[in-house]
Amino acid sequence: MSLKDIEKRTVIGPMGEEIEIDPLRDYYCAATPDLKMEQRKSSIPIIEKFANWARSESLWILAFGTGCGGIELRPLVTPKYDVYRFGIQIRATPRQSNVFIISGYLSVKTLKRAIRAYEQMPSPKYLLALGSCTINGGMYWDSYNTINRLDYYLPVDVYVAGCMPRPESILAGFDSLKQLIKDGKGEGAAKYAEKFEWYKKNQKQIIKDWDMPDYNW
């Protein structure tokens, strides 16, 4: 995709008629995140608690390995670690998953895709940041093409430190994420909607060829 693809244009149809195409309106939902929807809670506390319990016990990971940590996630589904028994499953599409794992360093090019994938996930969604690279850049801190701090671009719920973290520490990270959700603190999506302007400003500052809508629904 390039900047040209999202420009407004006129296309001549097969019958000679003129069709106006505005890709930002036709192909994407151009709405910005709705803070009210993101913070929507049931008025009955016990139902909200029950929903939070269900959310925490059914974590569907988006199968998107962003850095070297992508390969480190594979052992989790092998017989030795077997995350399925904790209610953690892997989905192939952002629409159906609610946990996004940034696994390791993020180059600017991948950050663009990560933002798109994150924004396409339905809320409430959680973000697990893996490895030192997402915290302060890790060993790529002075690289010309990898970001240093992930929390400037996307709201992070749980960090798992290490380079790379062992599967055991990733499991511990999942445990603390579960506890966070059960306590009702897994509100990363609401935070993102609240500070949307700030996040967008940071994202646009480093993604120079911004060729997508501001909010990719």
Binding site: N136, S143, R149, K208, D209
Partner: peptide
């Protein structure tokens, strides 16, 4: 994608300074 600095593999390109200026170092 969308690179607007000097070619990054040239040795007169200071990656450390560039990263510090651009990527919000912690």
């Amino acid at each position: 994608e969308g690179w607007d600095g000097p070619p990054p593999y040239r040795r007169d390109f200071d990656t450390k300074k560039y990263a510090e200026d651009t990527y919000f170092p912690r």
